[in-house]
Computed example of a mutant assay.
Amino acid sequence: MDDGMDDGFVRLGERILLYNMYGTAGGVPAISFGGSPSTRWKRPDAVAALRASGLWMAVPDRPGYGGSTRQPGRTVASVVPDTVALADALGWDRFAVTGGSGGGPHALACAALLPDRVTRCAVTASIAPPIVDGPEPTEAEEAADPRRNRTSWKALREDLRPSLEETARSIMAAVEAGGPEFPPDPGAEPGPPAREDPAAMARLTATFVTSHDGWIDDLIAFANPWGFDLADIHVPITLWHGSADERAGKYTDHLTAAIPTAERRYYIGGHIPPTNTYRELLRWLSAGV
């Protein structure tokens, strides 16, 4: 890959945690947690934004993603000791954290449980703790409140692997048919065919083909108690979501109400923020040190 710096790794007992570095060496320290699923490899537009941000950002692969050793039974809060080990290896006493979608809860865990080390936390389109009691939610119940979602409900009762593998096959089939790396926002033109870009195909393969272990373990972790209380977060928090991402907006309603320091930020777009919004988020993160 030529989109980031050479890989680094941290040993955690019998596990290893792989990470990539982006931005400007010696810049403001930050750690970014990818979505579910994702890997440590950033797209070129994100790499360019990071180079201009003044941040020096570590992007680890959570256990079960990329080459990071799987950690069965991990919780959302399990990310905290891994993050401490990574920050210590990099020589960072204080650092900002950020996370998108499924990475959001992991960034929030660090904000809640590492208040003396985390300077700021920005999350994009994050989920909120789900409600998993009672019978399986209906489509109408999930649409009204995404915390009552069937994926989380099933994660406690069924083997998710077959359905995730089918989803991954469907995504890769669309890519092989000429689709872009990411689906476009509603009304926007699709990006160039991913199959024509070896780096994009490598990112997609690492995310959707190589292993589904990290994806499965994330979903199980989200469905179980997260290991911290949102009300215990007191570092500055911004919660970002797109105008076309109704589901994330409903999650953000709950997160904003639960986190004392939360500040809500809207942007025009969908689940993945456009480059100008990502640059704004990075500027906010870098202002905390």
Rank of each mutant, 00 (worst) to 15 (best):
A231K: 09
H234M: 03
R265N: 07
A244K: 06
L255S: 03
A257W: 03
I220L: 12
I233V: 07
N224D: 13
T238I: 12
D245I: 05
H212F: 10
A200H: 04
E181G: 10
P184N: 05
H241Q: 12
G227K: 01
G242W: 01
R247D: 14
T261K: 00
G191N: 10
A248P: 02
L255D: 03
A221P: 09
L204E: 10
F228N: 01
S243K: 07
D185Y: 05
D232E: 14
A188Y: 12
P198Q: 09
I216P: 00
T238H: 15
D197I: 03
L204P: 03
D253Q: 11
R265D: 13
E263K: 10
K250R: 15
A223W: 01
S211D: 13
W226K: 01
D245E: 07
H234L: 05
R265K: 15
P186N: 09
E196D: 15
W240Y: 12
T252A: 14
T205I: 03
T261C: 04
M201Q: 08
D197N: 15
E196C: 10
L204R: 02
I220R: 15
A244L: 13
T207R: 00
D218P: 02
R203N: 09
A262G: 06
V235E: 00
F222H: 08
W215Q: 02
T210F: 04
E181A: 15
D229I: 06
S211G: 09
A202K: 06
T210R: 15
P186A: 13
D217G: 05
G249E: 13
H254Y: 13
F208I: 04
I259E: 04
A223H: 02
G227V: 01
A206Y: 03
S211R: 13
D229C: 13
P192H: 13
D245V: 09
E196L: 14
G178I: 07
A199H: 08
V235A: 01
H212Q: 15
T207V: 14
G242A: 07
P190M: 09
S243I: 03
T252N: 14
D217R: 05
